[in-house]
């Protein structure tokens, strides 16, 4: 696989995702759906090209994470959430977020692929990285569904908030499975599953953020904007921290 193809796919994704986001914000319901399939195909092509260049699945680092998040978001954007107009709003948010993620890669070191570290051959390490990014994508999608509920009419708002809550739960299950894999990996590698450092504390913090969003007092949960904000914070904060760490890596 010629690595030169990858930047071309990247710029194509950036342009098409930004255009599609604009289109989804402006177009009538249903008209955006064919574009969604095209975006998914493009994101899939980019992920496959990266896999062929790397000789392994994309796992960690800014570029690889963004490629995977884009693939997840473009697939999730096509899921029917129960209301066509709510789904159009959510797709617009997903594609806008995808365009922002891709734009972040224009920063220095943004488009750097990670080397084939020997640990990446180990199944528990692969599972940990893959499930961590998958859970991040699900939390981000839940956050975007919550944000899409802002300004929506009551029926759509209820559908989007419920959708967001469901994906917070799915994301938590995937996140815990990822942590289980990471614990197993560390136990085999370094003798103990736990480590006192900023990364482990941050992972615990992620879990607590999602837990807090799911434990709003009834009076607060009844306020749609407050509930939407609480459900949006975990995914947005996690993605922000995750990408910032990797962009700042020397």
């Amino acid at each position: 696989m010629n690595p030169v193809l990858l930047p071309w796919l990247y710029y194509a994704c950036l342009a098409v995702f930004a255009g599609a986001a604009l289109w989804a914000w402006l177009a009538a319901p249903r008209a955006w759906r064919p574009a969604g399939w095209f975006l998914l195909a493009l994101a899939l092509a980019q992920a496959l090209a990266a896999s062929l260049v790397l000789g392994r699945p994309p796992l960690a680092g800014t570029y690889e994470t963004a490629i995977l998040l884009l693939l997840w978001l473009s697939a999730l954007a096509l899921l029917p959430c129960g209301d066509p107009e709510a789904q159009r709003r959510l797709a617009a948010w997903c594609w806008s977020c995808g365009a922002v993620l891709l734009a972040l890669l224009l920063l220095p070191n943004g488009q750097r692929l990670y080397p084939d570290w020997y640990m990446y051959q180990y199944i528990w390490s692969r599972l940990f990285f893959s499930l961590r990014v998958a859970s991040l994508a699900l939390f981000l999608y839940a956050a975007l569904a919550a944000l899409a509920s802002w300004g929506a009419v009551a029926v759509q708002r209820a559908a989007l908030l419920r959708w967001s809550r469901n994906f917070l739960l799915v994301g938590t299950a995937v996140f815990l499975a990822g942590e289980f894999s990471g614990f197993t990996w560390r136990m085999q590698w370094l003798g103990d599953y736990w480590c006192w450092n900023a990364n482990f504390l941050e992972a615990t913090l992620y879990f607590l953020l999602v837990t807090a969003a799911a434990h709003l007092p009834p009076a607060w949960a009844a306020k749609p904007r407050l509930r939407a904000t609480a459900q949006a914070i975990p995914g947005l904060l996690m993605t922000g921290l995750f990408m910032t760490h990797m962009l700042m890596e020397p």
């Binding site: 469901n166 739960l169 799915v170 938590t172 299950a173 815990l176 499975a177 942590e179 289980f180 614990f183």
Partner: peptide
């Protein structure tokens, strides 16, 4: 317990 916890979350979802 941790594996069971993840599984229970998936079932709850």
């Amino acid at each position: 317990a941790y594996g069971l916890w993840a599984l229970l979350y998936a079932l709850l979802a």
